[in-house]
Amino acid sequence: MTVARILEGEPGGILLICDHASNAVPSGIDLGVAPALLDKHIGVDIGAAPLTEALAETLGAPAILATVSRLVIDLHRQPDHPGLIPTLSDGHAIPGNEGVDRFERIAFLYGPYHRAIEARIRAIRPTLLVSIHSFTPQLETAVGPMRPWEIGILSNRDRRAADLALPLLAAQGLVVGDNEPYSGRVLNATLNRHGEARGIASIAIEIRNDLIADGEGVWRWNDILAPILSDIRNRLAPEGLLAT
């Protein structure tokens, strides 16, 4: 199967990445769960794929969208991460993943996906990598308040793009989290591998999924983010290190 859907765009600028774009399960894999579970946040980043597509269209930017559910294999984890092939996700058992051949699934899905990203980076030499994700307002297993952020900006050691993005988003009157609801110092596998390892500036954008659950929400956030990402790209361009 094709593990990455490629949207063409202008080289040298922004490359959009959507690791959790799909809830599809490849033929021959049985997760042992009800189909409705794949539509929940544990199966797909709700709204992330339509937002990535909208931003690609508005910005004229290339994009890579995964075509497999994160319950099959989480493409945004290191190969040795215990949650790479989850057997439990937010309180839901994934019995079909018990005892699977980890290396076979990595070879079949994980490896080809990340090689596709590497190939696009070599071809288009982007200045900025932008990973699009969404998060649920509250985990089903959580005890405590709802997550208050509308959007979070995640980064690891390279703060170039994050430090530009945060004040621009705050100026829009948004409730913005810096490394919230997750820390990019802990969960940043895709951008660590393809951004920081190559000296390419990068950020992960996490949007609360109830805000992009329909077309109106997607286009609202597209209109917010597109000019901000263009501004960040332009500010980074003179100093941005190109991929080698």
Rank of each mutant, 00 (worst) to 15 (best):
V3C: 10
A4F: 10
L7E: 08
E8K: 03
E8C: 00
G13H: 03
G13A: 08
G13S: 09
L15K: 01
H20N: 14
A21E: 12
A24W: 09
P26K: 13
P26C: 11
I29K: 05
V33Y: 02
V33D: 11
A34T: 13
A36K: 13
L37N: 10
L38M: 08
L38H: 14
K40R: 15
I42H: 00
V44N: 02
G47E: 01
A48I: 13
A48G: 06
A48P: 05
A49F: 04
P50L: 08
L51G: 05
E53F: 10
A54Q: 11
A56W: 12
A56D: 06
T58Q: 03
L59Q: 02
L59T: 05
L59S: 02
P62K: 07
A63N: 08
I64H: 02
L65D: 07
A66V: 00
R70V: 08
R70H: 02
L71C: 09
V72G: 05
V72F: 10
I73T: 04
D74L: 07
H81D: 15
H81R: 02
H81L: 06
H81M: 04
G83I: 02
T87F: 13
T87M: 15
L88T: 12
L88D: 13
D90N: 14
D90T: 11
G91L: 12
A93L: 09
P95G: 13
N97M: 08
V100L: 13
D101S: 13
F103V: 05
E104D: 14
E104H: 11
R105D: 10
I106F: 01
A107P: 00
A107M: 00
F108P: 00
Y110S: 14
P112F: 12
P112Q: 07
I117H: 02
R120M: 10
R122C: 03
A123C: 09
A123E: 12
I124Y: 08
T127Q: 12
L129K: 02
V130F: 06
S131I: 04
I132V: 09
H133D: 09
L139V: 06
L139C: 11
E140W: 01
E140L: 08
T141N: 05
V143H: 04
V143P: 00
W149L: 09
E150R: 14
I151P: 10
G152I: 08
I153M: 11
L154P: 02
R160W: 07
L169I: 13
A170R: 15
A171N: 11
Q172L: 15
Q172K: 14
G173W: 09
G173E: 07
N179P: 04
P181H: 11
P181D: 12
Y182L: 02
G184R: 10
N188C: 02
T190R: 00
L191E: 01
N192D: 15
H194Y: 11
G195V: 07
G195Q: 11
G199S: 15
G199T: 12
S202Q: 05
R208T: 14
A213Y: 00
A213E: 03
E216W: 08
N222E: 11
N222Q: 15
N222G: 05
D223S: 07
L229W: 07
S230W: 12
I232N: 05
R233Q: 11
N234F: 04
R235Y: 03
A237P: 08
P238Q: 03
E239Q: 15
G240E: 06
A243T: 11
A243H: 06
